[in-house]
Amino acid sequence: TGIVNVSSSLNVRSSASTSSKVIGSLSGNTKVTIVGEEGAFYKIEYKGSHGYVAKEYI
């Protein structure tokens, strides 16, 4: 489990790349469930599926 550490919002992406499609966003202080790691990204549970967020903001 981690907490989103941004002042505005954090993009949730379809894969572990900054060039991948943005599938949603999370507000600061949102609790997320981390299910894996891939490079500079965490794989998280997101809306019944999975998404990826940059580690530096969790």
Score class of each variant (00 low, 15 high):
Glu56Trp: 08
Gly2Tyr: 06
Ala54Arg: 12
Lys43Asn: 03
Ile34Ala: 01
Ser49Phe: 10
Glu45Ser: 08
Tyr46Met: 04
Ile23Glu: 02
Gly2Phe: 07
Glu45Lys: 11
Val12Thr: 01
Asn11Ile: 15
Val22Tyr: 06
Lys21Trp: 09
Tyr42Trp: 12
Val32Met: 04
Thr18Cys: 13
Val22Cys: 07
Gly51Arg: 02
Ile34Ser: 01
Arg13Lys: 08
Ser17Leu: 08
Glu38Val: 11
Ser17Val: 05
Ser7Arg: 06
Ser15Ala: 12
Asn5Glu: 07
Gly28Pro: 15
Gly51Lys: 01
Val6Leu: 09
Ser19Cys: 10
Asn29Trp: 13
Glu45Tyr: 08
Tyr42Phe: 12
Ala16Pro: 13
Ser19Leu: 13
Tyr46Asn: 01
Ser27Glu: 14
Ser27Leu: 15
Tyr57Val: 05
Lys31Ser: 09
Ile3Pro: 04
Lys21Glu: 12
Ser7Val: 13
Ser20Leu: 01
Tyr57Thr: 06
Glu56Cys: 08
Lys47Gly: 12
Ser8Trp: 15
Lys55Arg: 08
Ser49Asn: 08
Ile44Pro: 00
Gly48Gln: 09
Ser8Val: 11
Tyr46Pro: 00
Gly48Leu: 07
Tyr42Arg: 01
Ser20Cys: 05
Gly28Ser: 14
Gly36Ile: 03
Tyr57Trp: 11
Ser19His: 08
Gly28Met: 12
Tyr42Ser: 01
Tyr57Gln: 09
Ser27Lys: 14
Ser49Arg: 11
Ile3Tyr: 14
Val4Gly: 05
Arg13Asp: 02
Lys55Cys: 04
Gly28Gln: 12
Val32Leu: 05
Tyr52Gly: 01
Tyr42Lys: 01
Gly39Gln: 06
Tyr46Gln: 01
Ser49Tyr: 10
Ser14Arg: 12
Arg13Cys: 10
Ile34Pro: 01
Ile3Arg: 08
Ser14Gln: 15
Thr30Gly: 06
Ser49Glu: 11
Thr33Phe: 11
Val32Trp: 03
Lys55Asn: 02
Thr18Tyr: 13
Ser27His: 11
Val22Phe: 07
Lys47Pro: 02
Val22Ser: 06
Leu10Thr: 11
Tyr42Asp: 01
Thr33Tyr: 10
Ile3Val: 11
Lys21Pro: 15
Gly24Pro: 00
Ile58Met: 04
Glu37Trp: 07
Ala40Cys: 10
Glu45Arg: 09
Leu10Phe: 05
Glu38Ile: 10
Val53Lys: 00
Gly24His: 02
Val35Ile: 14
Ala54Phe: 09
Ala16Asp: 03
Glu56Pro: 06
Arg13Val: 14
Ile3His: 10
Ser15His: 14
Lys43Ala: 06
Glu56Ile: 13
Ser27Thr: 12
Leu26Asn: 00
Ser15Gln: 14
Ile3Gly: 04
Ser7Cys: 11
Asn11Met: 14
Ser20Gln: 02
Lys31Trp: 13
Leu10Asn: 03
Ala16Arg: 02
Val22Asn: 05
Glu45Ala: 10
Phe41Asn: 02
Gly2Leu: 07
Glu37Lys: 05
Glu37Asn: 06
Ser14Tyr: 14
Val32Ser: 01
Gly36Gln: 06
Tyr52Thr: 00
Val35Pro: 00
Val6Gln: 09
Val12Trp: 01
Val53Glu: 00
Tyr57Met: 10
Leu10Asp: 02
Phe41Thr: 02
Lys43Val: 11
Thr18His: 15
Glu37Cys: 08
Ile23Ala: 02
Val6Thr: 12
Ser17Trp: 05
Ile23Asn: 01
Ala16Glu: 03
Ser8Cys: 11
Lys31Ala: 11
Lys47Ala: 10
Lys31Gly: 06
Ser15Gly: 13
Ala16Gly: 06
Ile3Cys: 09
Ile58Asn: 03
Ser9Met: 12
Ser14Pro: 04
His50Asp: 06
Val53Tyr: 00
Ser15Thr: 10
Tyr46Asp: 01
Gly24Val: 03
Lys21Ser: 12
Ile58Glu: 02
Ser8Asp: 13
Asn29Ser: 09
Gly2Ser: 05
Ser27Pro: 15
Val4Pro: 04
Lys43Asp: 02
Thr18Ile: 15
Asn5Ile: 13
Val12Gly: 00
Glu45Phe: 09
Leu10Glu: 03
Gly36Asn: 06
Asn11Gly: 08
Lys55Glu: 02
Gly39Glu: 06
Gly24Cys: 04
Gly51Pro: 00
Ile58Phe: 05
Gly24Gln: 02
Ser49Leu: 11
Val53Thr: 02
Asn5Thr: 11
Ala54Thr: 07
Thr33Trp: 10
Thr1Pro: 09
Ser19Glu: 11
Thr1Leu: 12
Ser49Pro: 01
Ser17Arg: 07
Val32Gln: 01
Tyr42Val: 03
Lys55Gln: 05
Ile23Cys: 04
Ser17Glu: 07
Ser14Val: 15
Ile34Gly: 00
Val53Cys: 05
Glu45Gln: 08
Ser17Thr: 10
Ser27Ala: 14
Tyr46His: 05
Ala16Asn: 05
Phe41Pro: 00
His50Pro: 05
Asn11Phe: 15
Gly51Gln: 02
Arg13His: 15
Ser8His: 15
Thr30Trp: 06
Ser49Val: 11
